[in-house]
Computed example of a mutant assay.
Amino acid sequence: MPLDLEEQEQLDQFKAFWQKYRNLITGVITAALFAYAAYSGYQWWRNSQALEASKLYETMVGAIAKGDKDQTLRAADDLQKDFGRTPYAAMSSLIAARIASDAGDGNKALDYLRWAAKNASNDGYLALAKLRLVTQLIELGGEKDFAEADQILNQKPIAGFESLWLERRGDWYLAQKKNDQAKQSYQEAWKKLDQAKEFPEEARRLLKVKLDAVGGVSQ
């Protein structure tokens, strides 16, 4: 059926519009398709990675139950190497650090903590790794150890861990016999902790012991 004049005019306008903008429209559609394909591929990859990492983590848990330190640490190493972006890698590194430390291998423990403190994808594990690393460095007590701990503590605290950051700063001062600065840090930590009701009572008791050791809470 032949087009009337109005329909023919609309068709001509559409043809002109398409002729002018077809490259742009085609480019936008192509980019959107590529973005969707990339997102879908990433989601599949992430789910696949998490599944494989969980299997390796289960192997590590089994090794811990058997008391097989070597297999436990190998599993943690493999999780770091092959599945470093998953939470399992950081979680296993924290566990491996404790096992290595208990076995008397302090350097290996520090390596695991340093890896997790740099690579953990989960904020909670990242904060725990940094705080535990600082504690280990303070216990070592060397000049380089204090400097490394200071560098970590100068970083912005992970949200929700501000009071523990301040408490570790107090530990850092106290280990160097800077009691006044330690007391101030502990007092600031106490104020933060008093506002964070979700913290366990054990954390409050421990901080209170430290505060009492340097003169107590200011009123």
Rank of each mutant, 00 (worst) to 15 (best):
L79Q: 00
S185Y: 06
K118L: 09
V28F: 08
E6D: 15
R169F: 03
A175S: 15
V28D: 06
L24D: 11
K15H: 09
L164H: 05
I138Q: 05
Q19H: 11
E58L: 14
K20P: 08
L79K: 02
F146P: 06
Q155F: 04
Y173R: 09
G27W: 09
D105W: 02
N122A: 10
N23F: 11
E52A: 15
F199T: 05
S93P: 08
P2S: 07
D68P: 06
G215D: 08
Y36C: 03
L110V: 05
Q8V: 06
G41I: 07
T26I: 14
I25S: 06
K178P: 02
A159W: 04
D77N: 14
L193D: 00
W45M: 08
G216V: 09
A120Q: 01
F161Q: 01
D123C: 01
Q155H: 04
K210W: 05
A129Y: 02
W165D: 03
K108T: 14
I138K: 03
E167P: 05
Y39H: 11
G62C: 08
M60C: 04
D70M: 12
K183F: 03
W45H: 13
A75R: 00
W115G: 01
K191L: 13
I99W: 09
W190C: 03
E143N: 12
D105R: 08
Y36E: 06
R205C: 05
L110C: 03
D123H: 07
L193Q: 03
N107I: 11
R22C: 07
E52R: 05
D150W: 00
V28M: 09
A147S: 13
Q151E: 15
K197P: 03
A175E: 10
D180W: 02
A16T: 15
D82R: 10
A97G: 01
A31M: 13
D180G: 06
Q181K: 12
L51A: 15
E162D: 13
E148Y: 06
L193S: 06
T26F: 14
R22F: 11
L126F: 10
K178C: 01
D12G: 04
L166R: 08
L94D: 05
G142Q: 13
F161C: 00
G216T: 10
K144D: 15
E201D: 13
S101L: 10
E7T: 14
A38M: 10
W44M: 07
A109F: 00
D171G: 07
D102I: 05
T135D: 15
A182P: 09
S40L: 05
E162L: 11
Y36N: 07
F14K: 03
E148T: 11
R168Q: 14
Q43N: 11
E58R: 12
K55S: 10
S92E: 03
Y88H: 14
W190E: 06
Q19N: 13
A116T: 09
